[in-house]
């Protein structure tokens, strides 16, 4: 199914055998993961839900920065909106699981007007501007007493399910969201938009000079990442059942996302998944060490930035020249006889 063009001497290759195998492998993995709640206990299911949320977050941050050059420290804005959007919708009669999906989409809707403002900024200004936006959203939410004010609120609507059922449903939704978001991100990067975004990431002015609609490309990416982070927010709420504005809009989320993407490999699709797993393991082992845990995270990130700038996956990719989820275009010379 490789996209072979009937050019006389050349053809364009976009797939490879390892890539087919890897794509099949990913599909099988997702399929196998469906059975986790029936095989393992509620505790492990909850743990894996957290991991899936981390995978979503890392993938979204990577899409923004690694493929669009949009380095943000404000994606917690949409994590918070996803979580509080879910609360708001359940308070207004929407069933909890549909509310979670709607809240994620609503985060995307809110990202549209926000992007009009924010995407005018570049580089460090954009990063900080995004943070300011997150703080503003947090303030607005904290002002609303029906959303618990600053003290927090729980997702009471989920109490209709038994804990086991609830955790299984939440897990399946997390798995579905992760699979769909990753697949959509992957396919998007394989389209023309994906190539345009990479050009924008590398040089915005040069991208405009070859006719790329810089603003609209960035906007689509920004809205996509908002939906993803919104989903992560509503899933976090369902996984922990309680949220506080301070925590859910905390800039620490951005630190985590950056950590996962740097460790896994910026600008590769597989890297963020690897980074999320690493972060998940570290979090489980060392989270009890309090401040030292954060220091350790920071130190690890710095070590990676200095000595392994391509991250774990990026380094592997380089060394072994593999692309499991290829988005590029290779020009191959046709063999004579055929």
């Amino acid at each position: 199914m490789s996209e072979e063009q009937p050019m006389t001497h050349y053809r364009v290759q976009r797939w490879s055998v390892p890539a087919y195998v890897a794509n099949g492998g990913f599909a099988l993995l997702v399929l196998a993961l469906v059975f986790v709640p029936s095989v393992f206990g509620t505790f492990l299911t909850q743990q894996l839900t957290s991991l899936l949320i981390l995978v979503i977050l890392a993938a979204m941050w990577n899409a923004l920065a690694g493929f669009g050059g949009l380095v943000s420290v404000g994606q917690q804005a949409y994590i918070g909106l996803g979580a509080y959007g879910t609360i708001y919708l359940t308070q207004h009669g929407v069933a909890p699981y549909p509310a979670m999906i709607l809240a994620a989409l609503a985060a995307g809707v809110i990202a549209l007007p926000t992007s009009l403002l924010l995407l005018r900024l570049r580089g460090g200004q954009f990063a900080i501007g995004a943070w300011v936006v997150a703080e503003v959203f947090a303030l607005l939410v904290a002002l609303d007493q029906s959303l618990g004010g600053g003290t927090g609120i729980s997702l009471a609507a989920l109490n209709v399910y038994s804990p086991d059922r609830r955790q299984a449903y939440t897990y399946w939704l997390a798995l579905g969201c992760a699979a769909v978001l990753l697949a959509v991100g992957y396919l998007m990067l394989r389209t023309r938009l994906g190539a345009s975004l990479q050009a924008i990431r590398d040089d915005e002015e040069a991208a405009a000079a070859v006719g790329i609609r810089v603003m609209s490309a960035k906007r689509i990416l920004y809205i996509f990442a908002a939906i993803g982070c919104g989903a992560a927010g509503s899933l976090t709420l369902a996984n922990t059942l309680f949220i506080q504005t301070q925590a859910v809009f905390d800039v620490q989320w951005s630190a985590y996302m950056i950590f996962m993407v740097l460790v896994g490999g910026l600008g590769t699709l597989e890297g963020p998944i690897v980074g999320a797993v690493v972060f998940f393991l570290i979090q489980n082992k060392f989270a009890d060490y309090g401040a030292w845990y954060l220091v350790g995270l920071g130190a690890t990130a710095i070590v990676f930035a200095l000595f392994l700038p391509r991250g774990l996956w990026g380094t592997m990719e380089m060394r072994f020249d593999i692309r499991l989820l290829p988005v590029g275009y290779y020009l191959r010379r046709r063999k004579r006889a055929s």
Binding site: Q5, P6, M7, Y10, V12, R192, A195, S196, Q198, A199, R201, D202, D203, A206, A207, V210, G211, I212, G267, G328, Y329, Y330, L331
Partner: peptide
């Protein structure tokens, strides 16, 4: 140049894809 892309992708992003673009 778009440094993170190949030479071919650098021009492809300007021509558009599909047979004509290739």
């Amino acid at each position: 140049p778009f440094g993170g892309m190949t030479v071919f992708e650098n021009v492809l992003v300007a021509t558009g894809r599909g047979r004509a673009g290739y």
